[in-house]
């Protein structure tokens, strides 16, 4: 068999493989369309049912602006408290959940336990946690904070410990070679390598928590989402529109700030890459 034949055979194999993959995903797509009755034509034929909603954008009811601003601040505080309270827990758990730091058999058990718990907890949405905490401590911002806190601890533990696992082993071995104990290794070899990624992940999580805090009110978790949902339920769109605008401004602002700060942390405050236009 010549090389050309080999290449031909290989490329035909790739062709059939890719065709099968594409056909599979397209088939799944068609099945999904029919199973969910997903019909974009409905958006046109049913457009009349949303006229009242879009009309509200033309005549927002600004009388709820003050109340909305206060709720907005409360929502921000919810996100901040959840992130701030989750940080110390996540830092400690992240070391226990890092494979490269947990070598002994007992430590392996702790590692498995921490990571398993974190995975299970972060698989469940904050909204579902909020329902559990509402049963526990009744409605208001507090169960919202608790729900975001639980989810943040699990999520940050996972992100942080993955980060610890990918640190450079060089400094670790260097410090160990001096005969330093576990704690000294942690302080001098691990922490300097992870402090910036931790900061960056925390900002990222703050951003997510702000987004989540705006909707956790739907189940009774407090914040601006609770009021927004009640206005929608009362079919009071002019007021709901004002609330939505406030949410958009806050989420946008926090997103911008968080991504700017993260960029600064990741590049060490240095120059950004050269921009060019085509």
């Amino acid at each position: 068999m010549t090389d050309e034949d080999k290449i031909k055979e290989r490329s035909s194999w790739y062709f059939w493989r890719n065709l099968t993959i594409v056909a599979f995903f397209l088939g799944l797509f068609v099945v999904a369309l029919f199973r969910l009755n997903f019909d974009p034509r409905l958006l046109v034929t049913n457009f009349r049912s949303t006229l009242k909603l879009w009309g509200a954008f033309a005549s927002p009811d600004w009388s709820v602006l003050g109340e909305g601003a206060q709720l907005l601040v409360k929502t921000l505080y919810m996100a901040f408290m959840a992130t701030a309270l989750a940080l110390p827990f996540a830092i400690v758990l992240s070391f226990l959940g890092a494979k490269n730091l947990m070598n002994s058999p007992v430590a392996q058990v702790i590692y498995t336990f921490v990571r398993g718990f974190a995975s299970v907890i972060r698989s469940i949405q904050p909204i579902i946690w909020a329902i559990i905490f509402i049963v526990w401590v009744r409605t208001g911002p507090f169960p919202g904070v608790l729900a975001l806190w639980v989810h943040s601890v699990a999520d940050m533990t996972k992100l942080f410990s993955e980060r610890v696992e990918s640190i450079d082993p060089g400094p670790l071995e260097a410090i160990e070679a001096t005969g330093a104990g576990k704690l000294l290794v942690l302080v001098y070899a691990v922490i300097p390598q992870i402090i910036n990624p931790y900061l960056s992940f925390t900002l990222y999580r703050l951003d997510i928590n702000v987004r989540m805090a705006t909707i956790i009110g739907i189940v009774g978790g407090g914040g601006i989402g609770m009021r927004l949902y009640s206005y929608i339920n009362k079919w009071n769109f002019p007021k709901a529109v004002v609330m939505t605008m406030l949410i958009v401004i806050m989420v946008w602002g926090i997103d911008y700030l968080s991504s700017r700060l993260r960029e600064r942390i990741e590049t060490g405050g240095g120059e950004r890459s050269e921009k060019f236009t085509i």
Partner: peptide, 28 residues
């Protein structure tokens, strides 16, 4: 940026009003 700032749960309310309750509204 505006569309992204509104969570998909709130979009789901809009689409539930628009095309009725059900998985299609959620998908939209």
């Amino acid at each position: 940026n505006v569309v992204r700032s509104v969570e998909s749960l709130i979009w789901a309310i809009v689409f539930a009003i628009w095309i009725g309750f059900g998985p299609a509204a959620g998908a939209f």
